[in-house]
């Protein structure tokens, strides 16, 4: 599997993502600097977590206009798998590759903790190794992960089975307490129309080894690797 992790100035989970991809796929992804204008032929492109350009403007707003994003958009249109995690999700929304926006957490502060996610669809390259309805634990670490979209978009997302994950409690129920950042309908991750672009706030790359406190994120990478190798 040939994969690339895009590095923006201010990305800070790029190395975590590289380590996770290498661990699960056995192949080290390439790092691509934000100023590049083209990409080699790839199976997977990842926009990692961090604070691209400091996120002093709207999160992801500047990164979405970086040189490399034109190539990322073209690759996405051509069907290459694109995964955006945390800041990467914010960038994908700003770039128009995914619908909706990420607002400030409803409790107004940065939050770093394990959350439970419920798998809402297995019909994607990122979720096929999970069972539908499966609940797994993975950490979040963000200040602006409160997903919002207009009613029509939400209806479409639901109708087209494009909500990938929801924040739930240990029993798999959506509750206000489990909805860590106040996202609409407890949405933690969404898919693009063609299902080849996934954005999510939690960090599956920090939950792939027991030493990290859990391996809930492992199946996401196994899904990607399995689909590509199959």
């Amino acid at each position: 599997m040939k994969s690339a992790v895009i590095v923006f100035p201010g990305s800070n989970r790029d190395r975590d993502m590289i380590a996770a991809l290498e661990l699960i796929s056995g192949q080290k992804p390439i790092s691509v600097w934000h100023a590049e204008t083209s990409l080699p032929k790839l199976d997977l492109i990842v926009l990692p977590g961090g604070f691209a350009y400091g996120d002093y403007l709207r999160t992801g707003a500047i990164a979405a206009r970086a040189n490399v994003m034109r190539a990322v958009t073209e690759a996405a249109e051509a069907g290459v798998a694109v995964l955006g995690v945390c800041n990467g999700f914010q960038i994908l929304c700003e770039a128009g590759l995914l619908p909706g926006v990420l607002m400030r957490n409803s409790r107004l502060s940065f939050i770093c903790r394990d959350v439970n996610l419920r798998v809402e669809t297995t019909d994607s390259r990122f979720t096929s190794a999970y069972r539908k309805g499966e609940v797994f634990s993975t950490p979040v670490a963000h200040g602006e992960g409160n997903y919002r979209a207009d009613d029509e978009t939400l209806k479409r997302l639901a109708g087209e089975d494009r909500v990938a994950f929801r924040y739930v409690d240990g029993q798999g129920r959506t509750t206000d307490a489990a909805n860590v950042n106040g996202s609409v309908d407890s949405i933690a991750g969404v898919l693009s129309e063609k299902r080849n672009v996934l954005g999510l706030m939690p960090h599956p790359e920090n939950a792939v080894e027991p030493a990290q406190g859990g391996i809930g994120g492992r199946k996401m990478f196994e899904s990607i690797v399995g689909k590509v190798l199959a």
Binding site: N12, A19, S109, C112, N206, Q212
Partner: peptide, 16 residues
């Protein structure tokens, strides 16, 4: 307090 600090970035935190 510590939930406002990212204590997991870099992926190597074994004890939080």
């Amino acid at each position: 307090v510590w939930e406002q600090y990212d204590h997991l970035v870099q992926g190597n935190t074994m004890q939080r």
